[in-house]
């Protein structure tokens, strides 16, 4: 398992004391520990049919925002091993109430979630809505809905709205019925591959 190897046998970890691990290592370790209680869910016990879920995944264009095994868009997190990283309840919540718990991407720099939805109103009258890629005291980096990056100085901003609880991902609570959600969750739970 990926995270296990990064903890137990990564050369750097072996050579250095624990106090020397980097922020990325910390996130990997957290993801590993987090996954311990989740990786043993048996897909067969779930109410949905994973094959049906795979078909739904394709027909609903989830891949315009997500990668599975290298293919797909990248507005949302990679799902190649989502079934190993996430529990069933979280997967269900992600589809019904996407903004409720934003993923902390293990490769993010230290600015919270790179998926936080923000709206920026600039002094010259532009409004940029997208996900926050990074932020410091003086600047913010935003990836907008059309997949363009913006580097903005806060001096140049009239208002910066952090839209906690929302997400760029649409909620499927009203558009997909219970059976469809179950099928999608079952399919996502089978995704355990990747490197």
């Amino acid at each position: 398992m990926r995270q296990r190897s990064s903890i137990l046998s990564d050369q750097r970890a072996a050579k250095r004391g624990l106090w020397q691990i980097t922020g990325d290592d910390v996130r990997d370790i957290a993801a590993y520990v987090w996954s311990l209680g989740r990786s043993d869910v048996s897909v067969a016990e779930l109410p949905g049919d994973p094959d049906e879920g795979a078909a739904l995944y394709a027909s609903m264009d989830c891949s315009s925002c997500h990668i599975i095994d290298g293919a797909g868009g990248t507005m949302g997190p990679v799902l190649t091993n989502i079934g190993r990283l996430r529990g069933i309840d979280h997967l269900r919540e992600a589809l019904l109430d996407p903004g409720a718990t934003l993923p902390e991407n293990p490769v993010a720099s230290a600015a919270g979630s790179i998926y936080l939805l923000v709206s920026v109103q600039t002094r010259d009258g532009r409004r940029i809505t997208g996900t926050r890629v990074n932020e410091d005291t003086f600047t913010i980096q935003v990836r907008d809905e059309e997949d363009m990056f913006h580097s903005i100085r806060k001096d140049d901003i009239v208002s910066l709205q952090k839209r906690f609880g929302e997400s760029l991902m649409p909620s499927y609570a009203d558009t997909v019925n219970e059976g469809g959600i179950n099928a999608l969750v079952a399919y996502l739970a089978t995704l355990r591959g990747g490197s």
Binding site: D10, Q11, T139
Partner: peptide
């Protein structure tokens, strides 16, 4: 990296085998 500010946009790290 955002070349304007020096802020990182993403980072990817290879998983190298022990004893590479």
């Amino acid at each position: 990296i955002d070349a304007r500010t020096g802020r990182r946009l993403w980072r990817w790290q290879a998983r190298l085998p022990p004893g590479v």
